[in-house]
Amino acid sequence: MASTGIRIGGLGGQGVILSGIILGKAASIFDGKNATLIQAFGPEARGSACSAQVTIADAPVAYPYVQNPDVLVVMSSDAYTQFIPTLKADGLLLYEEELVTPKDLPPGVKAYGIPATRIAEELGRRLVLNIVMVGFFAGVTGVVSLVAAEKALLSSVPKGTESLNLNAFRRGYEHGRSLVGAA
């Protein structure tokens, strides 16, 4: 039975938790799988560091935390430094390449970067950086389906911002697909 543990890390205000919500919704509501989202909740989650843990699995999720993620998504260098030691030896790192420089990457880890901030700026709103990352995650991993992710996205963003967010998602998705060599 497949189970994927995901850790998303970044800064407060980057939309880290919303990224987790979209992935969790996509898997559990639109892909018919199970998902559990845990958000880091504490003084450290206010203002600066912020993180979410998402488990996506075929079977119901028992243990809710992600101790050693299969996939680490980082949008800040602090998050990279903090969470890279927890990533599984053969894990997958997805990072915002203008904000994170993956130093001392463990040898078994596969890493893919994306200029998500620049893409978001090109679309006119730096704020959609997180949605670019969600698309990137979907494109690289396939853990959530494209259809489910788009539905989850549309049900999670404010009215009037749907097309902006959908564009952000698709740019990230396509970038991801091209990096893993998908058609």
């Binding site: 987790g20 919500i21 969790g24 559990s28 509501i29 199970n34 998902a35 559990t36 989202l37 845990i38 958000q39 909740f41 999720v61 809710p64």
Partner: peptide
């Protein structure tokens, strides 16, 4: 408890 309270699921 805090985990169940802040844990998000379907």
């Amino acid at each position: 408890d805090e985990v169940v309270g802040h844990m998000t699921e379907r």
